[in-house]
């Protein structure tokens, strides 16, 4: 496929990596992809902006908080330079804006596979219980709160510690008492705003599934993984591919219930009874997406094939037992490249 693909989320930080670099790597590793990758980041220190083995060009975008106008101006300028054919947003926080701006993508001739605003709302963390119920899956109770005082009286309302305090988009802290909870509440509210979410803690092991969904209720090329090691922020540092029909069926039911369109990640805990409990649905590829290439189910490529209406070839059976182990490495960046990002907001890398 000889197309130019813009990919966001180039913040491949060791402890909490954005998925963009891994998505680009999947495409670059495929012999079916002969196009160009334009990496889009939000910070001059996003590593992906300097990785010319994965990105042919890299640019900075204004943060979503700068508003749609700033984003539109920036994207138009980048598009003039790079003639983007497809955009793959990879960060939770930018998804609502990206979905809102699909008329702009249409106007510019940029293709995408994104959920509708309603689909996006349905998988919001504060509506997860409702969605899970509809799909027949267990889900720990979630409550939205704007008041730190809740954590000092919650035990009288049946909420027992430890609990999970979460942001609407990012951040999750396991807290053992009211003081810890109030601190986590303030931390998350300062970073991600209100409401802050409280979720009952499920003891068990974490499993994730990622797939591309066609918007008609079908999921394509699902890949499942068990986390084997996590960073301080709970992000997978190592994982192993698995295949569990029960997890597949539960995820398929979720996707069917909202006709999800685009990539997604389903996060579940397998509790001590062996039942899956839905923890989150992320509206984008996960940072561990390169495992999909590792098991011969290159999901970013499947996404492009779906976007261009190409027949997705018969995929090999899932290959359980394939590991990924993430590692941190230093990229040496000449001053001229750093300068180009700082002064001009980006550069051609190849």
């Amino acid at each position: 496929m000889d197309v130019t693909v813009a990919i966001t989320g180039m913040n491949a930080r060791p402890d909490n990596p954005g998925p963009g670099v891994a998505v680009a790597r999947c495409l670059k590793d495929s012999d079916k992809f002969t196009g160009r990758i334009v990496g889009l980041g939000y910070d001059a220190l996003d590593p992906g902006l300097y990785l010319n083995e994965y990105c042919d060009a890299a640019y900075l975008l204004p943060y979503p908080s700068a508003g749609d106008e700033a984003f539109i101006t920036s994207l138009r300028e980048i598009h003039e330079q790079e003639h983007i054919d497809v955009i793959i947003p990879c960060l939770d926080a930018e998804l609502p804006g990206m979905v809102r701006l699909t008329p702009l993508f249409d106007e510019l001739g940029i293709k995408y596979l994104l959920p509708t605003p309603e689909q996006l709302r349905l998988r919001n963390k504060d509506r997860l219980v409702e969605l899970a119920e509809h799909a027949g899956i267990h889900c720990p109770e979630i409550k939205a709160t704007t008041d730190a005082g809740f954590f000092y009286r919650c035990q009288h309302e049946g909420w027992k510690y430890p609990l999970v305090v979460k942001g609407l988009f990012y951040g999750a802290h396991i807290v053992d008492n009211a003081d810890q909870a109030a601190e986590a509440f303030r931390d998350i509210a300062a970073q991600w705003g209100y409401p802050v979410l409280v979720q009952r803690l499920v003891e068990g092991e974490e499993y994730n599934l990622t797939a591309v969904c066609d918007g008609k209720g079908e999921m394509l090329g699902e890949v499942m993984m068990k986390k084997m090691a996590v960073t301080d922020k709970g992000k997978a540092w190592s994982g192993v591919s698995i295949f569990d029909q029960k997890l597949r069926d539960a995820s398929a039911a979720l996707i069917k219930s909202i006709n999800w369109r685009g990539p997604l990640e389903v996060e579940v805990m397998r509790d001590t009874h062996g039942d899956y409990q839905l923890i989150e649905i992320n509206p984008r590829f996960p940072a561990w997406i390169y495992l999909s290439e590792g098991v011969d189910r290159n999901l970013p490529l499947i996404l492009l094939q779906t976007i261009f209406g190409k027949q997705v070839e018969d995929l090999p059976d899932p290959r359980p037992g394939v590991l990924f182990i993430r590692y941190a490495a230093e990229r040496i960046v000449p001053q001229s490249e750093f300068e180009a990002v700082i002064m001009h907001g980006g550069q051609r890398l190849t």
Binding site: Y207, K226, M228, S241, I242, P320, G321
Partner: peptide, 17 residues
Amino acid sequence: LAISESGFIFDPTSGHH
């Protein structure tokens, strides 16, 4: 269960080894 001659056992459903 995937049982290897070396004695390494992998459960493809749970990911346990």
